[in-house]
Design a protein around this nucleic acid. Sequence first.
DNA 1: CAACAATGCTGTCAGTGTCTACATTGAAGC
DNA 2: GCTTCAATGTAGACACTGACAGCATTGTTG
Lengths: 226, 226
Amino acid sequence: MSSRGDATHANAGTGDGASSSYHHGNLRSALLERAEQTIEAEGVESLSLRQLARDLGVSHGAPGRHFRDKQALLDVLAYDGFVAMNAQLDAAVATPGPPAERLGAVARAYVTFAVEHRALLQVMYTTKHAPDASPRLLQIGHASLATTTDLIRAAQAAGEVAPGDPDRLALVAFAAVHGVATLATNQLLDGVPVAEATRATVDLLWAGLTATPASPTVPPTPAPAP
Amino acid sequence: MSSRGDATHANAGTGDGASSSYHHGNLRSALLERAEQTIEAEGVESLSLRQLARDLGVSHGAPGRHFRDKQALLDVLAYDGFVAMNAQLDAAVATPGPPAERLGAVARAYVTFAVEHRALLQVMYTTKHAPDASPRLLQIGHASLATTTDLIRAAQAAGEVAPGDPDRLALVAFAAVHGVATLATNQLLDGVPVAEATRATVDLLWAGLTATPASPTVPPTPAPAP
DNA sequence: CAACAATGCTGTCAGTGTCTACATTGAAGC
DNA sequence: GCTTCAATGTAGACACTGACAGCATTGTTG
């Protein structure tokens, strides 16, 4: 838990002209912000610490004061991305209405976030993080899954979804929506509007959730080890 | 249609010791093969043309004779990946049995391929390809979707799947399986075995496909339970 | 006012992708 | 057999990058 967030200084900089002096005052945040803009505009592989420094008017070594290396910056970007995304998902799941409606809202929120932050999502879901950052990222990544699990559990309690391991069902539902998001961000939906694909997915998922008799769990043939 | 495949020389080199001479004889194929090994072992971002050349015992400029730039090599890698994957999917869909079984086989084949070629799949689904290569990649990428569409259409003809636009249904099913594959390759299944997640997804999908009344298209009031 | 830690700057190094000029090779045509 | 030529590989160069080390400039704290 070192070298992560905790903006140590939390320097004020409410807007006064502290930007022309020797110290930038906000470099860390500015780097993160600009980095996201850059990756969304030109792709992750085009991100350059030196160009970033140039954009912000600091020397090429300055970023090293805030991020040990490039990957460390990406790790923070991913973490912050999960935080932002989870906030959106939580807001979506909190909308009043029947479970089907709420599931749709969460799915829409997820896909919307994905499309609006294509490159960021890619960074978030790329397991190239430093071993130190991994557990933290894993944990916050699972938070979004928990949102779905709660929703399914509630729907089961209300009798609208057939019984079955809510964790498992949530994982599948999450994966399905995630798949749509992935295809959408890579323009592989072949002309089908994103909203439409999302709706079709939710419809199909819901149909399956209300119909499926839990999980069969009857392995006729012993599953070959993966 | 330029600079792609067509191994112009198709030099024999059935194994005779032509590897010590000035010309490598097989550089293009060797580069592709080694590149895939490298990205699977160390990730795409660690791929270096110079290291590749070193590994194969040629000079650092040699790869440039076969691939205009690094991205061109990745494009070919992606294309070949789609070809290989489609072959697996076609083989899976050709297995005899009821549609549900065949859908499961295709899903398993897809996920298996994804897990065995994590990095390659990432390259395949990354829209950073040269504008020249894009249409070709898009086309072959859609071929795998066509496999699913045919399957769904057949199931509808057999009366096992409710009517509805087979293209749309296939897209959704494909996205769901793709989502599982993506989560699996990034180790985000949280301990759930890949095979199990795949099976659960297929079960849920099939339940939805057999139950869904085409596309509801009734936005405001979800059908009250009978 | 004097330390001090935080932050930024400059210089440097190895590694990389790409371009250009040159070398080697095998095959085609005379 | 010889020349010619395209294909392929080599060597050098250039700009760029990430990372590191040493020095400079701050604001803060005692």
